[in-house]
């Protein structure tokens, strides 16, 4: 559907905060059965972290790989559903922190868990249209789950950042195509002034996650003339460990292509960062010439799908910053009491 001249990822970075809580520990508090936990463990922010600081961490890692002066960045878009401010852009703080101000455009995007890939669409388009030389797209969240709710087992924190440019020689991967599939499907929402989102349990499955991802991927493949054989890795949005595997089955994707991009089991669902962190993990290991199919999902609902081809440069730039696994493996377990403190669930 949307073919681009040449738009490349010149730098990428993933960040996960240090703290983890095990699904078992959450189950212990609420007396839940431990045999069917949606993830093993999830990442939790430190007391001094929020979506903005996570976004800055990821952006700085991306900059290290991009090796461009931050002042050349023309747009900073942050996709998140956990903005520290309801009114006041996160993008301005991120842009200031990395030194990209003031000749930029900055905005925050919200589309539940696909806000990050949505930000990527707009940055990609701005670069493709020649309006900016480089742009920074970030998906970042410190996701909220109501205590005791199923979401509490998965709602996690993390960020992924991508610096997009046009010069193929600088790119670690080329964005060959993307598409979007959107309908009004109220599977999950958070009203204004509310602390925690609501969801519709099993309704979030077939009519929401699976319907949108499957159609988004099919449209992309059909319209742009790709087949699943053309791709070496497939990264889906990962609200739990089961959904991406089912999506793979529905689309007929070999599970071996999905596994490298799975991070949900170790860090949980990082919402707007979730599928992008999967992409980061794949970029950390993919070989030049390999293709990645990325498909996000955002409640409400929609799915963005991308075809990304890895370039030669990946070999040079990958090691300029720590791989995502370094942050995934850097972990300290906390109990529910510390978790409650970190996530401000204690009334002070």
């Amino acid at each position: 559907m949307v073919r681009m001249s040449s738009v490349v990822i010149v730098g990428y970075g993933g960040y996960v905060p240090r703290y983890r809580i095990k699904g078992e520990e959450i189950a212990r508090i609420w007396g839940r059965d431990r045999s069917e936990l949606p993830t093993e463990e999830k990442s939790v922010t430190g007391l001094d972290e929020d979506t903005v600081t996570l976004a800055v961490e990821a952006a700085r890692i991306a900059l290290k790989r991009a090796r461009i002066p931050p002042s050349k960045i023309g747009a900073v878009h942050v996709g998140t559903e956990s903005k520290p401010y309801a009114v006041k852009p996160s993008g301005t703080i991120v842009a200031e922190a990395i030194g990209a101000v003031p000749r930029i455009t900055a905005a925050d995007f919200e589309f539940a868990c696909k806000a990050g890939t949505e930000a990527l669409q707009f940055i990609t388009s701005l670069v493709d249209a020649g309006r900016i030389e480089y742009g920074l797209a970030i998906g970042a969240d410190t996701a909220q789950g109501r205590p005791g709710d199923a979401l509490e087992f998965t709602a996690a924190s993390g960020a992924a950042a991508f610096i997009i440019g046009k010069n193929k020689n600088e790119g670690v991967a080329e964005i060959e195509a993307w598409t979007s599939y959107v309908t009004d499907t109220p599977d999950f929402w958070r009203r204004e002034y509310e602390r925690y989102p609501h969801h519709t349990a099993r309704f979030t499955g077939d009519p929401a996650y699976f319907h949108h991802i499957v159609n988004s991927v099919k449209n992309l493949l059909e319209n742009d003339g790709y087949t699943l054989n053309d791709v070496d890795y497939v990264v889906f949005h990962q609200p739990n460990t089961r959904f991406p595997l089912v999506a793979a089955r529905l689309l007929g994707v070999d599970l071996e292509k999905v596994k490298p991009g799975l991070v949900v089991g170790q860090i949980g669902n990082t919402y707007a960062a979730c599928s992008l962190l999967g992409l980061v993990r794949v970029l950390d290991q993919a070989k030049p010439g390999q293709r990645i199919l990325l498909s996000s999902f955002g409640s409400g609902a929609g799915s963005d799908s991308y075809i990304i081809r890895v370039l030669e440069n990946i070999k040079l730039k990958r090691d300029l910053a720590p791989p995502l696994d370094k942050f995934i493996d850097r972990k300290t377990y906390i109990d529910y009491a510390i978790y409650a403190r970190h996530r401000k669930k204690i009334l002070m």
Binding site: G46, D48, E49, D50, T53, V56, E57, A97
Partner: peptide, 8 residues
Amino acid sequence: VEATLRKI
């Protein structure tokens, strides 16, 4: 040690 940005 390395610098990072945090809520102060």
